[in-house]
């Protein structure tokens, strides 16, 4: 289960002045408290509180998604992140995977 929204904050790197919101959620049941996201995030967004990660400074998140890549429990969810174009994805492989799935 994805836990309640812990924080909603403006994305600071927006030169147009328009507020873009990044919302970070931690699935508290999935998080195993390994602290990898705390160590890996360059912006110090997370802190371990008890045995779960908590996004204490979401206002500094720049949407790199390093934490997603490193979290072994897939416990994180970011909303409002700009997705970069994924030109490296091979559609041939994706079509094959889709058939298997």
């Amino acid at each position: 289960m994805v836990g309640p929204a812990v924080a909603i904050t403006p994305f600071h790197g927006n030169p147009s002045g328009e507020m873009r919101m990044i919302e970070i959620r931690v699935d508290e049941e999935a998080c195993n408290g390994c602290g990898l996201c705390v160590k890996d995030c360059p912006m110090g967004v997370f802190e371990l509180r008890g045995s779960v990660s908590s996004p204490v400074h979401p206002e500094n998140c720049m949407g790199c998604l390093s934490c997603h890549e490193i979290c072994p429990a897939q416990a994180l969810e970011h909303r409002g992140v700009v997705p970069c174009r994924r030109m490296y994805v091979s559609m041939k492989v994706c079509r094959m995977l889709n058939r298997v799935i």
């Binding site: 360059p42 949407g63 790199c64 998604l65 390093s66 997603h68 890549e69 992140v81 700009v82 970069c84």
Partner: peptide
């Protein structure tokens, strides 16, 4: 280069 990530780099 300050940080490299799968979706963005600083």
């Amino acid at each position: 280069i300050i940080h490299t990530g799968p979706n963005a780099c600083l």
